Structures are given as structure tokens and as C-alpha cells.
Deep mutational scan, measured.
Amino acid sequence: MTTFKLIINGKTLKGEITIEAVDAAEAEKIFKQYANDNGIDGEWTYDDATKTDTVTE
């Protein structure tokens, strides 16, 4: 398992969460579901060097 981080730069929700996932694709799926569940819809970027997804509304 690898640690992945999501940075949220939303209009109403800001912060970050960290998860353990098998790979980047699994982490992205989990993060996008989390964002959807919390009403966050924005531009996504991924930095492989830091294993960090960022969503900005």
C-alpha cells in the first residue's frame, strides 16, 4: 500500500485527506467519490512525485 493525499481547494470546503491505496488509480477513484459526496466539482491535478491529487473549484 502507498500513501496518497488529496488537497481540497473548494469554495466552501478546504483541507486535505490522506489514504492508503494500492495505486494512483485506486486513490483517484476514492478521492473523486469523496469529492462527489461532498459536492466538490472542480479542476483535478495529480503530482506523481508527491502522490498528491489536488481539486480546485
Rank of each mutant, 00 (worst) to 15 (best):
N9D: 10
K5D: 02
A27V: 07
E43T: 12
T50R: 05
D41K: 12
K11S: 12
N9I: 13
A25I: 09
A35N: 01
E43Y: 11
N36T: 14
I40L: 07
D41Q: 11
I30M: 06
T12D: 10
K51E: 03
D37P: 02
A24N: 06
A21Q: 03
I30K: 05
F4N: 02
G15M: 15
T18V: 12
I30R: 02
F4S: 01
M1L: 14
A24T: 03
D48R: 06
T52G: 04
I30D: 00
D47I: 12
A21M: 05
F31W: 04
D23K: 02
G39L: 05
K14W: 13
Y34G: 01
Y34R: 00
T12F: 14
K5Q: 03
T50I: 07
E26K: 01
E57M: 10
N36S: 14
K29N: 03
W44S: 02
D23W: 10
K51F: 11
D41M: 13
A49T: 10
F4D: 02
K14C: 15
T50M: 09
I7V: 12
T12E: 09
G42F: 08
I7C: 13
D41N: 13
K32F: 04
Y46E: 01
N36E: 14
Q33L: 06
K29M: 09
K14A: 05
D47Q: 07
K29A: 11
L13S: 10
N38L: 15
D53M: 15
D23P: 00
A35Q: 02
V55H: 04
T18N: 03
K51V: 03
T56W: 06
A35H: 03
Y46S: 03
T2L: 13
A25M: 10
K51A: 08
T3W: 11
E26F: 03
T56Q: 06
T56Y: 08
I8N: 00
G15D: 09
K14P: 04
K5E: 03
I40Q: 02
E57G: 06
I40N: 04
K29C: 14
K29P: 00
I17R: 00
E43R: 07
T54V: 08
T45R: 08
I19Y: 02
D48K: 08
N38W: 14
T45E: 10
K32W: 08
F4M: 00
K11A: 12
A25C: 15
A49R: 09
T45H: 12
Y34L: 07
F4R: 00
K32S: 05
E26L: 02
K29V: 08
D47H: 07
T45W: 11
L13W: 15
T52R: 08
I40K: 01
I7T: 02
F31G: 01
Y34A: 00
I8Y: 08
E57P: 05
A25L: 11
D47P: 05
T52Y: 05
L13H: 13
K29R: 14
T18D: 01
E16K: 04
M1K: 14
T54R: 05
T12V: 12
E26D: 08
L6H: 00
N36Y: 14
I30G: 01
E20N: 08
F4T: 01
K29F: 06
F4E: 02
G15V: 15
W44Y: 03
K14Q: 12
T3I: 13
T45G: 04
A25E: 13
E28W: 13
T18I: 12
I30P: 01
N38F: 12
Q33E: 07
D48F: 10
F31I: 05
I17A: 00
N38Q: 11
A27M: 04
D53I: 15
I8K: 00
I30F: 14
Y46I: 11
W44G: 01
D41G: 05
D47C: 14
K14M: 08
Y46M: 08
E57K: 02
F4L: 02
I7G: 00
G42A: 04
N9L: 11
T56A: 07
K51W: 09
A21C: 14
G39W: 07
I40V: 06
I7W: 04
L13K: 05
D23F: 09
G15W: 15
K32E: 01
E57C: 11
K32T: 03
G10N: 02
T18R: 07
E26A: 12
E20Y: 14
G15Y: 15
D37V: 08
K32Y: 06
K29Y: 05
I17G: 00
T45S: 11
I17D: 00
I30C: 13
G39P: 03
T54K: 05
V22R: 13
I8T: 00
G10D: 03
K11Y: 10
E57T: 09
K32P: 01
F31Y: 01
E26S: 11
E26N: 05
M1H: 10
W44F: 05
G15A: 15
D37I: 10
G15K: 13
G39V: 03
D23M: 05
I7Q: 02
D37Q: 10
E16L: 07
I40P: 01
V22Q: 11
L6R: 00
K11G: 09
D41H: 14
M1D: 02
K5S: 03
F31V: 01
D23V: 06
V22F: 11
Q33N: 06
E28K: 14
G42V: 09
G39T: 03
N36I: 14
D48T: 10
D37N: 06
D47N: 08
T56N: 07
T54G: 05
A25Y: 11
A35Y: 06
T54N: 04
T52H: 05
T54P: 04
N36K: 15
E26Y: 05
D37G: 02
D48L: 12
D23G: 03
T2R: 10
W44V: 02
V55S: 07
Y46F: 12
Q33W: 05
I17S: 00
T45F: 11
D48H: 11
G42L: 08
A21W: 12
E43P: 04
I40F: 10
I19L: 08
A35S: 02
K32Q: 09
G10Q: 05
T2C: 15
A27C: 12
I8E: 00
Y34C: 08
T50S: 11
W44H: 02
K29G: 04
A21D: 01
I8C: 13
T52A: 06
K32C: 13
K32I: 10
A27F: 03
K51C: 14
A35D: 04
A24K: 14
A24Q: 11
I19G: 00
E43D: 11
T18A: 03
T3Q: 11
G10V: 11
A49H: 07
T3D: 02
I19W: 03
E43I: 13
T50D: 04
F31L: 04
G42E: 03
Y46R: 08
F4W: 09
N38Y: 12
I19V: 09
G42P: 03
A49Q: 10
T3K: 10
K14D: 06
T12W: 14
E16D: 03
F31R: 00
T54Y: 10
T18H: 09
D23C: 13
E20L: 13
D37L: 09
K11H: 13
D48P: 14
G39C: 11
K5L: 08
E16C: 15
N36V: 14
T56L: 05
T2F: 13
T56I: 07
K14T: 09
G39H: 08
V22C: 14
E28P: 01
M1V: 09
D47F: 10
V55M: 03
E20C: 15
A49L: 14
E43A: 08
Q33D: 06
I8G: 00
D53A: 15
L6A: 01
E16N: 05
G10E: 01
F31S: 00
T50F: 06
T2I: 13
D37W: 05
I8D: 01
V22N: 09
T3R: 08
Q33I: 06
F31T: 01
D47T: 09
I19Q: 00
K29T: 08
K11Q: 13
E43F: 12
T54I: 12
E28M: 15
K29L: 07
A25R: 09
N9F: 12
N36P: 01
T2W: 13
N38V: 12
Q33R: 10
E20P: 01
A25G: 06
A35I: 13
E16I: 13
D48A: 12
